[in-house]
């Protein structure tokens, strides 16, 4: 049977999704699916790149050479993750330079958690434990995203991220067994990052209009509230093992539900941070823009040099016309 009409292509797409198979770069897909995917992947990529800043903030001041090496390697991994994801977005026809513009101008977002400052070395450990922990909760389901290149990038990323979380937690364990100052530092960092970590899962389900379509298309595999609950359930025992108190007086095990109950998230603060008024939004964007702008002369020089060497690259793809000359 030959597929000739758009409804047929659409049916083929729907069937692929229904069978939980992957959509690949050269498959037909609805424009909205493609646009949604590009936006989701790009914002994920932006998060990795921007996330290098709050953590990178502590590399030069790391208090032992081993910790310094670990943190530097972690930040390097994040650059790599960003690139894997931009690469996946580009298979959908996006252009990395254009995505960078959208990031810098604020038209595309990144995870709101990175708009908070990292103020002590304990923040490094807490980010590994809570922020990477929340990211893993979000990301593991994405390893089964309906879009092939994204799913494959996520498998690679999740594997590396699990190391990051373990290293962060190990730092906190070491600190909690260290001096009184260190224990207070860990508790203070936890107090500042707990609620923003819960916000990483996005607004509550009843305030998330796109969830239904995203779930139908395999763009999203679980709702925000489901993932947030799973994160809390996983993390509470980890906090107990560490000996830190999570800053929520309403946190308690609910035997009936089989889950932890927890207090209300401050969605006003979330909205303020997401809309650009968080403590570090301007600073993060400025740094990214400066690196990009200051680096233009370097990128141009590399292109100019490449043109002068033996095997010049095509600058653009020639349109596939019926031109039979040459």
């Amino acid at each position: 049977m030959t597929i000739t009409t758009e409804p047929d292509l659409r049916a083929h797409f729907d069937e692929t999704i229904a069978r939980d198979r992957r959509i690949e770069p050269r498959d037909w897909m609805p424009d909205k699916y493609r646009a949604t995917m590009i936006r989701q992947i790009a914002q994920h990529a932006h998060s990795e790149i921007i996330g290098m800043q709050p953590e990178g903030n502590w590399i030069t001041r790391a208090p032992s050479l081993r910790r310094k090496a670990i943190l530097l390697a972690k930040v390097q991994d994040e650059a790599g993750h960003g690139m894997y994801l931009y690469s996946a977005a580009e298979t959908l026809g996006a252009d990395r330079a254009d995505l960078t513009d959208k990031l810098i101008s604020g038209r595309q977002k990144y995870s709101s958690i990175f708009n908070y400052p990292t103020l002590t070395y304990a923040d490094v450990g807490v980010i590994g434990w809570l922020v990477d922990g929340a990211a893993i909760c979000n990301q593991v389901p994405l390893c089964r995203s309906s879009y092939g290149p994204y799913a494959r990038a996520m498998i690679r990323i999740c594997k590396e991220e699990s190391f990051h979380q373990r290293q962060g937690y190990e730092l906190l364990l070491t600190m909690m067994r260290g001096s009184q100052d260190q224990r207070e530092m860990v508790q203070d960092a936890t107090n500042r990052f707990w609620w923003p970590s819960l916000m990483m899962f996005g607004p509550p389900d009843d305030a998330s209009p796109n969830t239904e379509q995203s779930m139908a298309w395999g763009v999203k595999r679980h709702t925000n509230d489901e993932l947030r609950q799973r994160f809390v359930d996983m993390t509470v025992p980890q906090a107990e093992k560490l000996g830190v108190t999570l800053p929520d007086p309403e946190l308690r095990w609910n035997e009936e539900r089989g889950h932890y109950d927890f207090g209300p998230v401050d969605w006003d603060e979330f909205k303020a941070v997401v809309s650009g008024n968080g403590p570090c939004n301007a600073q993060r964007a400025t740094r990214r823009k400066a690196a990009h702008d200051d680096g233009a002369w370097v990128r141009e020089a590399a292109v100019a040099h490449a043109r002068k060497t033996a095997t010049p690259l095509p600058e653009r793809i020639e349109p596939a016309a019926g031109d039979s000359s040459d």
Partner: peptide, 18 residues
Amino acid sequence: VTRMPELEEETAIANIAL
């Protein structure tokens, strides 16, 4: 780190620093 002219150069310079 976070100041390099292109993302690929970030991994390169972090490698050398490591």
